[in-house]
Design a protein around this nucleic acid. Structure first.
Lengths: 347, 347
DNA sequence: GTGAAAGCGCTAACAC
DNA sequence: GTGTTAGCGCTTTCAC
């Protein structure tokens, strides 16, 4: 900027005025400055600018895994909103690791992001207190912050969605419904388990721990759990899967367990559910073609709502901490509407 | 930092030394400084730090769409590499819009990112010249830069992959193979079309423009193009689809055209290919279960390679501009190994 | 309309 | 071991 000023024969401040389209600059002077800018290839340093101005016009987003469709949709919506507000976006994946979540958040804070959107992996967010005190705003998405951390949060109605899914299966005659969920320490997994239990209770059905298998959406783990469930004396007639990854891996596991050839879709071979009914939490690509009934969340809306809320806060909104809960939607496609097989003991 | 220095009764520089774990500070002094830091809730301002040091320890990534699985996998790999090098990552989606690509890149440059990884939407990158001159490094991924821009690039072997896919169908007896590709202005789409044509030529088959349909992966467009192809006097017996989105939408379109019920997988109804063979460019979720033969790219490897290359450059590597081309892999799963139906005119 | 001076928060270079 | 000074590139304030 100094060089430009010298080249244009004006003071530094005049260059600054031109660069920022500030009023009160003689048109001829402005032109001379612009010429110098082009000639010297000058580009404003926004780092220095934000240092001086106090706001960095950037926000940080911490999700679980950028490669997962759920979070990448959320991420895209946040990005869109941020750009719309003239903000750039830092992204980072926590990999479901509390320490990594903290490191990312603190790294973003060290860059003085104006705000944060966090899908928390950990349950202790006391590390955020100094940042909040310093004026950084944060909105939690998909999962609430740990105890002792007051912040806005945008969730899906996890319990309600799972309740609706289980109730749907019950309405179609199922009495033995298995629940395949994520690690129980994850908020959404716990909530969905709660919804499942509530639906059973509402229908007067017993809660059978033997029908519940919580764990990572790992193919081997799911195959083992499914095999165990299906081998049992009184096996389930229906499955409720706890998230998109689990649903997909369950379909794979069922195909391998029931021995139905892969390639079923293309070859017309009777495929994979082995007579079971299935409702999956989360919609997924090709679920429509496969005929899989799902409880759909709207990850983009989750991201958009969180971002909108954050920018409202950044604009000065100091209302009380809020908690949004977005509805889920049950989409019947066939797999969740199959009746249980006729019972052998009551022919 | 000033306040901490005052509180600890030391000079600013000593605080700086402690904060940066620089050697040459008395243990007792360091402890006093640390206490003051904790007491005051001091957090280093990395913005000021990078302004002074010259490097921002951040890179910018511009992709086409963060919500698309292909780019989100690429993005995740870049993120991983960046974090490994102590760099934060700015992300932005160009939406296949050249102007938006440029705006994002220039915004990142204004923040003085150390480097850029760009999946270009536009074909004119002269706007990068001043940035390159100023020392910013860029690596192009998935598609090369426009003419007049010298930069490293990491690609998939698009032509080779499409050639292999088409040759695979030819080897299984097909003579009439349709190609459903993306907009021809997109580099990868043009390259894959080229590979398709090369395979036909190598087999002595004629190139029939009527068998080629290039356009956005839009459901309506694909349905119309497919209907036209299948209604023709000499319809194709096999399809080669040009990317993941197109493959998925083609499966949908076929299901709706052939009138096979959705839910085929679950209900065991004879589904969707209507006797056609199919090879898709790009692997996709559940392609294994569906039995869809694909030419797989490795988006994560694309991202990792690009990022590794960028950090090599940032570390001072000034070798000549390089062009990596990663191999693709044909994965036979059934849909690409079906023979054409017996010809009616030669019974 | 234009400019000079101060300072955002930090580190590099050097002195003590 | 510790402190002083200068300055990264910009904007803010106020004087002309």
């Amino acid at each position: 900027m100094n060089d430009v000023a010298a080249a244009a024969g004006v003071a530094l401040k005049t260059v600054s005025r031109v660069v920022n389209d500030e009023p009160g600059v003689n048109a001829a002077t402005a032109l001379r400055v612009k010429a110098a800018i082009d000639r010297l290839g000058y580009r404003r340093n926004d780092g220095a600018r934000t240092l001086r101005r106090g706001r960095t016009a950037s926000i940080g987003l911490v999700i679980e895994d950028a490669a997962d469709v759920f979070y990448s949709s959320l991420s895209r919506a946040v990005e869109e909103t941020a750009l719309h507000h003239g903000c750039l976006l830092f992204t980072g994946s926590s990999q479901e690791d509390a320490a990594r979540e903290r490191d990312l958040v603190l790294a973003f804070c060290a860059r003085r992001v104006d705000g944060l959107i966090i899908v928390p992996a950990g349950t202790d967010h006391t590390y955020l207190a100094p940042e909040f005190e310093a004026g950084t705003r944060a909105v939690f998405a998909d999962r609430p912050p740990g105890a002792g951390c007051e912040a806005d949060v945008v969730l899906s109605d996890n319990a309600g969605g799972a309740r609706a899914g289980a109730a749907h299966l019950i309405a179609h005659g199922h009495r033995r419904i298995a629940f395949l969920g994520d690690l129980p320490r994850i908020f959404t997994a716990a909530e969905r388990l709660r919804g499942y239990r509530e639906a059973l209770a509402a229908a007067g059905l017993p809660y059978d721990e033997g029908l519940v298998a919580m764990g990572p959406a790992d193919p081997a783990r799911l195959r083992a759990d499914l095999a165990r469930l299906l081998r049992a004396a009184d096996p389930p007639t229906a499955l409720l899967t706890g998230n998109g990854r689990t649903t997909v891996e369950t379909l794979r596991a069922l195909a391998s367990i029931t021995g139905s050839a892969t390639g079923a879709f293309v070859e017309g071979v009777r495929p994979g559910l082995g007579g079971l009914a299935l409702v999956g939490f989360d919609d997924f690509e090709l679920a429509d073609l496969l005929g899989v009934t799902v409880v759909a969340q709207d990850p983009a809306r989750l991201g958009r709502t969180a971002a909108d809320l954050l920018f409202l806060r950044l604009a000065g909104d100091d209302g009380p901490v809020t908690r949004f809960e977005l509805p889920t939607r049950l989409i019947p496609r066939g797999s969740g509407e199959r009746p249980p097989p006729p019972r052998r003991d009551h022919p």
